[in-house]
Simulated scan of single mutants.
Amino acid sequence: MSRTALLLALPAALILLLFVAVLGSFASVSFMVLEPGTAVFHGPASLANYTKLLASEGAWKAVLNTLRLAAEISALCVLAGYPLALLLARSGSRGLRRFILFCLVATFLSGGVTRAYAWLIILGNKGLVNQAAQAIGLPRMALINNEFAVVVSVLNFILPFFVLTLFGALRTIAQPLEHAARNLGASRMRCFLHVTLPLSLPGLAAATSLCFALSLGAFLFPQMLGGGRVQVLATAIYERIQASYDIPAAAALAMLFFVLVLLMLLAVGALRRAASARFAPEAA
Protein backbone atom coordinates (compact mmCIF):
# COMPACT_ATOMS: atom_id res chain seq x y z
CA MET A 1 0.00 0.00 0.00
CA SER A 2 1.33 3.45 -0.92
CA ARG A 3 2.13 6.18 1.59
CA THR A 4 -0.73 8.31 0.25
CA ALA A 5 -3.24 5.51 0.80
CA LEU A 6 -1.96 5.03 4.36
CA LEU A 7 -2.35 8.72 5.11
CA LEU A 8 -5.87 8.72 3.70
CA ALA A 9 -6.78 5.70 5.82
CA LEU A 10 -5.28 7.17 9.00
CA PRO A 11 -8.36 9.20 10.14
CA ALA A 12 -10.66 6.21 9.76
CA ALA A 13 -8.14 4.01 11.57
CA LEU A 14 -7.93 6.49 14.47
CA ILE A 15 -11.72 6.62 14.78
CA LEU A 16 -11.89 2.82 14.71
CA LEU A 17 -9.16 2.66 17.35
CA LEU A 18 -11.16 5.04 19.54
CA PHE A 19 -14.23 2.81 19.28
CA VAL A 20 -12.17 -0.27 20.13
CA ALA A 21 -10.64 1.54 23.13
CA VAL A 22 -14.08 2.49 24.45
CA LEU A 23 -15.34 -1.05 23.97
CA GLY A 24 -12.27 -2.41 25.75
CA SER A 25 -12.86 -0.01 28.65
CA PHE A 26 -16.44 -1.21 28.98
CA ALA A 27 -15.28 -4.81 28.85
CA SER A 28 -12.70 -4.27 31.61
CA VAL A 29 -15.20 -2.46 33.86
CA SER A 30 -17.75 -5.25 33.42
CA PHE A 31 -15.43 -7.64 35.28
CA MET A 32 -15.11 -5.36 38.32
CA VAL A 33 -17.19 -5.41 41.51
CA LEU A 34 -19.25 -2.55 42.95
CA GLU A 35 -18.49 -1.53 46.53
CA PRO A 36 -21.78 -1.96 48.48
CA GLY A 37 -23.41 1.35 49.34
CA THR A 38 -21.10 3.39 47.10
CA ALA A 39 -20.47 4.13 43.45
CA VAL A 40 -16.89 2.83 43.68
CA PHE A 41 -15.90 -0.31 41.79
CA HIS A 42 -12.70 -2.28 41.96
CA GLY A 43 -11.03 -5.59 41.12
CA PRO A 44 -10.05 -8.34 41.08
CA ALA A 45 -11.71 -9.45 37.86
CA SER A 46 -14.85 -11.51 38.37
CA LEU A 47 -17.71 -12.98 36.35
CA ALA A 48 -20.20 -12.06 39.09
CA ASN A 49 -21.90 -9.35 37.00
CA TYR A 50 -22.46 -11.72 34.09
CA THR A 51 -23.71 -14.45 36.42
CA LYS A 52 -26.26 -12.07 37.94
CA LEU A 53 -27.41 -10.91 34.52
CA LEU A 54 -27.86 -14.42 33.18
CA ALA A 55 -29.93 -15.26 36.26
CA SER A 56 -31.91 -12.00 36.16
CA GLU A 57 -35.49 -12.26 34.95
CA GLY A 58 -35.56 -8.50 34.28
CA ALA A 59 -32.50 -8.67 32.04
CA TRP A 60 -33.94 -11.50 29.96
CA LYS A 61 -37.26 -9.65 29.72
CA ALA A 62 -35.42 -6.61 28.38
CA VAL A 63 -33.58 -8.80 25.85
CA LEU A 64 -36.79 -10.41 24.60
CA ASN A 65 -38.64 -7.08 24.48
CA THR A 66 -35.78 -5.54 22.50
CA LEU A 67 -35.71 -8.38 19.97
CA ARG A 68 -39.49 -8.46 19.61
CA LEU A 69 -39.85 -4.72 19.13
CA ALA A 70 -36.92 -4.63 16.68
CA ALA A 71 -38.51 -7.44 14.65
CA GLU A 72 -41.92 -5.72 14.66
CA ILE A 73 -40.47 -2.37 13.60
CA SER A 74 -38.36 -3.99 10.87
CA ALA A 75 -41.42 -5.82 9.52
CA LEU A 76 -43.41 -2.57 9.49
CA CYS A 77 -40.53 -0.88 7.68
CA VAL A 78 -40.69 -3.52 4.95
CA LEU A 79 -44.47 -3.22 4.60
CA ALA A 80 -44.49 0.58 4.55
CA GLY A 81 -41.11 1.29 2.99
CA TYR A 82 -40.93 -1.15 0.09
CA PRO A 83 -43.89 0.34 -1.84
CA LEU A 84 -42.53 3.85 -1.22
CA ALA A 85 -39.03 2.90 -2.38
CA LEU A 86 -40.49 1.16 -5.46
CA LEU A 87 -42.58 4.22 -6.27
CA LEU A 88 -39.51 6.41 -5.86
CA ALA A 89 -37.43 4.19 -8.15
CA ARG A 90 -40.04 3.54 -10.86
CA SER A 91 -42.15 6.70 -10.94
CA GLY A 92 -42.09 8.50 -14.27
CA SER A 93 -42.88 11.82 -12.62
CA ARG A 94 -39.76 13.77 -11.74
CA GLY A 95 -41.81 16.11 -9.55
CA LEU A 96 -43.18 13.19 -7.51
CA ARG A 97 -39.71 11.73 -7.03
CA ARG A 98 -38.36 15.08 -5.88
CA PHE A 99 -41.28 15.53 -3.48
CA ILE A 100 -40.74 12.10 -1.90
CA LEU A 101 -36.99 12.66 -1.62
CA PHE A 102 -37.58 16.06 -0.08
CA CYS A 103 -39.92 14.58 2.54
CA LEU A 104 -37.42 11.84 3.38
CA VAL A 105 -34.40 14.12 3.58
CA ALA A 106 -36.34 16.77 5.55
CA THR A 107 -36.75 14.28 8.41
CA PHE A 108 -32.98 14.28 8.91
CA LEU A 109 -33.02 18.02 9.54
CA SER A 110 -34.84 17.59 12.87
CA GLY A 111 -33.13 15.93 15.81
CA GLY A 112 -34.38 12.94 17.73
CA VAL A 113 -35.40 15.00 20.77
CA THR A 114 -37.45 17.33 18.58
CA ARG A 115 -39.26 14.41 16.98
CA ALA A 116 -39.87 12.76 20.34
CA TYR A 117 -41.51 15.90 21.71
CA ALA A 118 -43.48 16.23 18.48
CA TRP A 119 -44.90 12.75 18.99
CA LEU A 120 -45.76 13.65 22.59
CA ILE A 121 -47.78 16.58 21.24
CA ILE A 122 -49.48 14.40 18.63
CA LEU A 123 -50.20 11.33 20.77
CA GLY A 124 -50.55 12.87 24.24
CA ASN A 125 -53.72 12.70 26.34
CA LYS A 126 -54.56 16.21 25.10
CA GLY A 127 -52.70 15.80 21.83
CA LEU A 128 -53.90 16.30 18.30
CA VAL A 129 -55.12 12.71 17.83
CA ASN A 130 -57.16 12.64 21.05
CA GLN A 131 -58.60 16.09 20.40
CA ALA A 132 -59.73 14.96 16.95
CA ALA A 133 -61.18 11.75 18.43
CA GLN A 134 -63.13 13.62 21.09
CA ALA A 135 -64.40 16.08 18.49
CA ILE A 136 -66.19 13.24 16.70
CA GLY A 137 -67.45 11.65 19.91
CA LEU A 138 -64.82 8.98 20.49
CA PRO A 139 -63.32 8.38 23.95
CA ARG A 140 -59.82 9.51 24.79
CA MET A 141 -57.20 6.89 23.94
CA ALA A 142 -53.98 5.99 25.76
CA LEU A 143 -51.45 6.49 22.96
CA ILE A 144 -48.29 7.26 24.97
CA ASN A 145 -46.37 5.51 27.75
CA ASN A 146 -46.85 2.20 25.96
CA GLU A 147 -45.39 0.10 23.16
CA PHE A 148 -47.61 1.72 20.52
CA ALA A 149 -45.95 5.10 20.99
CA VAL A 150 -42.48 3.51 20.95
CA VAL A 151 -43.14 1.57 17.75
CA VAL A 152 -44.64 4.57 15.93
CA SER A 153 -41.84 6.96 16.94
CA VAL A 154 -39.00 4.55 16.18
CA LEU A 155 -40.63 3.60 12.86
CA ASN A 156 -40.83 7.28 11.95
CA PHE A 157 -37.15 7.68 12.78
CA ILE A 158 -35.73 4.73 10.83
CA LEU A 159 -38.13 4.50 7.86
CA PRO A 160 -36.19 7.09 5.80
CA PHE A 161 -33.00 5.02 6.26
CA PHE A 162 -34.83 1.96 4.97
CA VAL A 163 -36.40 3.69 1.97
CA LEU A 164 -33.22 5.42 0.83
CA THR A 165 -31.15 2.22 1.21
CA LEU A 166 -33.67 0.11 -0.71
CA PHE A 167 -34.14 2.85 -3.31
CA GLY A 168 -30.46 2.56 -4.25
CA ALA A 169 -30.82 -1.20 -4.68
CA LEU A 170 -33.98 -0.91 -6.78
CA ARG A 171 -32.33 1.62 -9.09
CA THR A 172 -29.67 -0.95 -9.99
CA ILE A 173 -32.25 -3.44 -11.30
CA ALA A 174 -32.34 -3.25 -15.08
CA GLN A 175 -35.80 -2.16 -16.15
CA PRO A 176 -35.54 -4.00 -19.52
CA LEU A 177 -35.88 -7.24 -17.51
CA GLU A 178 -39.24 -6.06 -16.21
CA HIS A 179 -40.26 -4.86 -19.67
CA ALA A 180 -39.33 -8.23 -21.15
CA ALA A 181 -41.48 -10.04 -18.59
CA ARG A 182 -44.43 -7.77 -19.37
CA ASN A 183 -43.96 -8.29 -23.11
CA LEU A 184 -44.05 -12.06 -22.56
CA GLY A 185 -47.48 -11.77 -20.99
CA ALA A 186 -46.73 -11.43 -17.29
CA SER A 187 -49.07 -9.26 -15.27
CA ARG A 188 -47.71 -6.43 -13.12
CA MET A 189 -48.02 -8.56 -9.99
CA ARG A 190 -46.39 -11.59 -11.62
CA CYS A 191 -43.57 -9.39 -12.93
CA PHE A 192 -43.03 -7.99 -9.45
CA LEU A 193 -43.09 -11.38 -7.71
CA HIS A 194 -40.84 -13.18 -10.22
CA VAL A 195 -38.49 -10.43 -11.39
CA THR A 196 -38.36 -7.30 -9.25
CA LEU A 197 -38.71 -8.85 -5.80
CA PRO A 198 -36.10 -11.62 -6.24
CA LEU A 199 -33.55 -9.19 -7.71
CA SER A 200 -34.16 -6.72 -4.88
CA LEU A 201 -33.70 -9.26 -2.08
CA PRO A 202 -30.01 -8.43 -1.43
CA GLY A 203 -30.86 -4.74 -1.10
CA LEU A 204 -33.91 -5.58 0.97
CA ALA A 205 -31.78 -7.64 3.33
CA ALA A 206 -29.28 -4.78 3.67
CA ALA A 207 -32.01 -2.22 4.38
CA THR A 208 -33.75 -4.53 6.85
CA SER A 209 -30.52 -5.30 8.71
CA LEU A 210 -29.83 -1.57 9.03
CA CYS A 211 -33.30 -0.95 10.44
CA PHE A 212 -33.02 -3.92 12.79
CA ALA A 213 -29.69 -2.63 14.14
CA LEU A 214 -31.09 0.88 14.64
CA SER A 215 -34.15 -0.54 16.39
CA LEU A 216 -32.02 -2.65 18.72
CA GLY A 217 -30.09 0.41 19.87
CA ALA A 218 -33.08 2.77 20.23
CA PHE A 219 -32.99 4.61 23.56
CA LEU A 220 -34.47 8.10 23.26
CA PHE A 221 -37.93 7.12 22.03
CA PRO A 222 -38.47 4.21 24.46
CA GLN A 223 -37.28 6.46 27.29
CA MET A 224 -39.46 9.47 26.43
CA LEU A 225 -42.53 7.84 24.90
CA GLY A 226 -42.46 4.55 26.80
CA GLY A 227 -42.86 6.28 30.16
CA GLY A 228 -40.71 3.68 31.91
CA ARG A 229 -43.19 0.94 31.00
CA VAL A 230 -41.36 -0.30 27.91
CA GLN A 231 -38.15 -1.94 29.06
CA VAL A 232 -35.51 -2.45 26.39
CA LEU A 233 -31.78 -3.08 26.73
CA ALA A 234 -30.78 0.54 26.20
CA THR A 235 -33.13 1.80 28.93
CA ALA A 236 -32.09 -1.06 31.23
CA ILE A 237 -28.44 0.02 30.90
CA TYR A 238 -29.42 3.63 31.60
CA GLU A 239 -31.40 2.70 34.71
CA ARG A 240 -28.52 0.68 36.15
CA ILE A 241 -26.30 3.74 35.89
CA GLN A 242 -28.78 6.42 36.97
CA ALA A 243 -30.74 4.54 39.64
CA SER A 244 -28.12 2.40 41.41
CA TYR A 245 -24.84 3.76 39.98
CA ASP A 246 -23.93 0.14 39.28
CA ILE A 247 -21.56 0.89 36.41
CA PRO A 248 -20.00 -2.62 36.29
CA ALA A 249 -23.45 -4.22 35.91
CA ALA A 250 -24.35 -1.66 33.24
CA ALA A 251 -21.08 -2.39 31.43
CA ALA A 252 -21.76 -6.13 31.57
CA LEU A 253 -25.24 -5.59 30.14
CA ALA A 254 -23.75 -3.36 27.44
CA MET A 255 -21.29 -6.11 26.50
CA LEU A 256 -24.08 -8.67 26.31
CA PHE A 257 -26.00 -6.16 24.17
CA PHE A 258 -22.98 -5.82 21.89
CA VAL A 259 -22.64 -9.59 21.50
CA LEU A 260 -26.37 -9.90 20.79
CA VAL A 261 -26.28 -7.20 18.10
CA LEU A 262 -23.16 -8.73 16.57
CA LEU A 263 -24.75 -12.19 16.37
CA MET A 264 -27.94 -10.80 14.83
CA LEU A 265 -26.01 -8.80 12.24
CA LEU A 266 -23.90 -11.84 11.37
CA ALA A 267 -27.07 -13.87 10.87
CA VAL A 268 -28.64 -11.18 8.68
CA GLY A 269 -25.37 -10.84 6.75
CA ALA A 270 -25.40 -14.57 6.06
CA LEU A 271 -28.98 -14.32 4.78
CA ARG A 272 -28.02 -11.37 2.59
CA ARG A 273 -25.11 -13.29 1.05
CA ALA A 274 -27.38 -16.28 0.46
CA ALA A 275 -29.93 -14.03 -1.26
CA SER A 276 -27.19 -12.46 -3.39
CA ALA A 277 -25.86 -15.87 -4.42
CA ARG A 278 -29.35 -17.19 -5.19
CA PHE A 279 -31.00 -14.29 -6.96
CA ALA A 280 -28.23 -11.89 -7.99
CA PRO A 281 -24.97 -13.82 -8.39
CA GLU A 282 -23.46 -10.98 -10.40
CA ALA A 283 -23.82 -8.65 -7.37
CA ALA A 284 -22.31 -11.08 -4.84
Rank of each mutant, 00 (worst) to 15 (best):
R68V: 06
V154C: 06
A39K: 07
H179D: 14
A252D: 03
I237L: 07
K52N: 00
R98I: 11
Q134C: 09
T38C: 05
Y238N: 09
T38K: 13
L266V: 11
T66H: 08
E57V: 13
M141C: 07
N125Q: 13
F257Q: 04
L96E: 11
G168E: 11
N65I: 02
L220S: 00
P202L: 00
L14P: 05
A116F: 02
E239K: 03
A274V: 04
P202H: 00
S28N: 10
A254C: 11
L256P: 03
P198V: 12
L164V: 02
S25N: 15
T107P: 05
L34P: 01
A75W: 12
F102A: 14
L193K: 10
G203K: 09
A186D: 06
L260E: 01
L204S: 09
C191E: 14
A284G: 06
V29F: 01
A13T: 10
L184C: 14
R182D: 04
Y117F: 15
A277Y: 03
L201E: 07
A274C: 08
N146D: 03
V259F: 04
S209V: 09
Q131D: 09
M264G: 04
G203H: 12
I100L: 15
F162W: 06
L138W: 14
K52E: 01
V259E: 01
Q231E: 14
G58L: 15
L184H: 10
A133F: 15
R98W: 13
V105L: 15
F257P: 04
R229H: 10
H194P: 01
A180N: 10
A270G: 14
P160N: 04
L104G: 14
V195P: 05
A234Y: 03
M141E: 09
L54Q: 00
F102I: 07
F148C: 01
L84H: 03
V152P: 03
T114A: 13
G269E: 13
L253I: 00
W119T: 01
L16C: 11
R171Y: 03
L120Q: 15
T165D: 10
L84D: 03
A5D: 11
A133K: 13
L104P: 14
V63Y: 09
P176L: 09
P139F: 02
L47E: 02
G112W: 03
A277F: 05
K126P: 01
F192M: 14
I247V: 15
L8I: 12
E72S: 07
G203I: 11
A274Y: 04
S187L: 04
G137E: 06
N145M: 08
G81M: 06
E35C: 02
L123I: 01
L204F: 07
V78C: 07
G92T: 01
R272I: 04
A249D: 01
A267I: 05
M224G: 06
F258Y: 08
A251M: 05
E282M: 12
Q231W: 09
I241M: 15
S91A: 06
R140D: 06
N49W: 03
G37T: 07
V268Q: 12
G43Y: 04
L86H: 15
P202R: 01
R272D: 08
I144A: 07
L201W: 07
G24K: 01
L54E: 00
L53A: 02
N65L: 02
A234K: 02
L96K: 05
R94F: 05
A205L: 12
A181T: 11
F258M: 04
G92K: 02
R94T: 13
V261C: 14
P176W: 04
